[in-house]
Computed example of a mutant assay.
Amino acid sequence: MPPADQPRVIATEAALDFLAEIRQDHPDILFHQSGGCCDGSSPMCYPASEYRVGETDVKLGEIGGVPFYISGSQYAVWAHTQLIIDVVPGRGGMFSLDNGRERRFLTRSRLFSGGEACPLPPAVAQS
């Protein structure tokens, strides 16, 4: 894959399967990478109609057809990093749709290397 085509956020097969399970109950959802407050720094999954995307939030991409956002300040820190959404045993964030399912989403990451980081297109801020 050419460097410019590197997505900023991807998901493991386990995460995509878990996401499909959640969408059976909640078809229209979105992700927001938590900033470390109440629920640590977990990727949080919300019904799209119940979460207001902020003016400075940045859409990193989509996983499994679900939009994935991060705050502008966090994006500045993670700009040279690919987020990899995975699933591990445990409880999800208090307000996240993975809560109560005995599995939770987890963000792993890897730094873009060499020529990958330079040609990445800018992420789009929400308006």
Rank of each mutant, 00 (worst) to 15 (best):
F112Q: 03
G92R: 03
Q33V: 02
N99V: 14
Q82K: 07
C38K: 02
G54P: 00
R104V: 03
A76K: 12
H32S: 08
D5T: 09
V124E: 14
G61I: 06
A76M: 00
Y75T: 01
L111D: 14
P89D: 15
G65Q: 03
H32A: 14
K59R: 14
R103W: 13
S109Q: 13
D25S: 14
T107Y: 02
F95I: 01
D98Y: 10
D17I: 12
G40H: 03
P27L: 04
Y69W: 15
M44G: 09
Q33T: 00
M44H: 04
A14Q: 12
Q74E: 12
I10D: 07
C37V: 09
L19V: 11
G61Q: 01
A79R: 13
F68A: 05
Q74F: 09
V66H: 10
G100M: 03
G64K: 11
I85G: 05
Q74C: 00
G64D: 14
V58D: 03
G90F: 05
I84A: 12
R101P: 09
S73T: 13
R8A: 13
R8P: 10
K59S: 13
A20E: 13
P119G: 08
N99G: 06
A11K: 06
A76T: 12
F68H: 06
S127L: 02
A20D: 13
R23H: 03
P47Y: 01
S41H: 11
G40D: 04
L120M: 15
I70A: 02
L19H: 09
H26V: 10
D17T: 14
E102Q: 11
G100C: 08
I84H: 13
L120T: 07
D86Q: 02
A14I: 02
G54S: 09
P47S: 06
D39F: 00
R104T: 15
P89K: 00
G54R: 05
N99Q: 13
P3F: 06
A123E: 12
P43M: 01
V124F: 14
V53E: 01
C45K: 00
L111N: 11
I10C: 03
R52W: 07
I22W: 01
P2K: 08
G54V: 02
Q33S: 08
A4C: 08
V87A: 09
G65T: 08
C45V: 10
A15W: 04
F18L: 02
G65C: 05
P3D: 10
L60H: 01
S41T: 06
S49D: 15
D28I: 09
S49P: 00
C38T: 02
D5G: 11
Q33A: 11
K59L: 14
Y51Q: 06
A125Q: 01
A14F: 01
G115Q: 00
D17F: 04
C118Q: 11
D28E: 15
A76L: 10
L30S: 03
G35K: 00
V53K: 03
F105W: 04
R101Y: 14
A117L: 07
E102D: 15
T56F: 00
E62R: 06
Y46V: 04
I85T: 12
R52H: 08
I10R: 03
S113R: 14
Q126K: 06
V124C: 13
S73L: 09
F31D: 04
C45N: 04
G40F: 01
S73E: 14
F95W: 15
S113M: 15
I85Y: 02
G90R: 00
P2H: 05
I10P: 04
R52M: 10
V58E: 13
V87Q: 12
A48D: 11
A11E: 07
G114A: 10
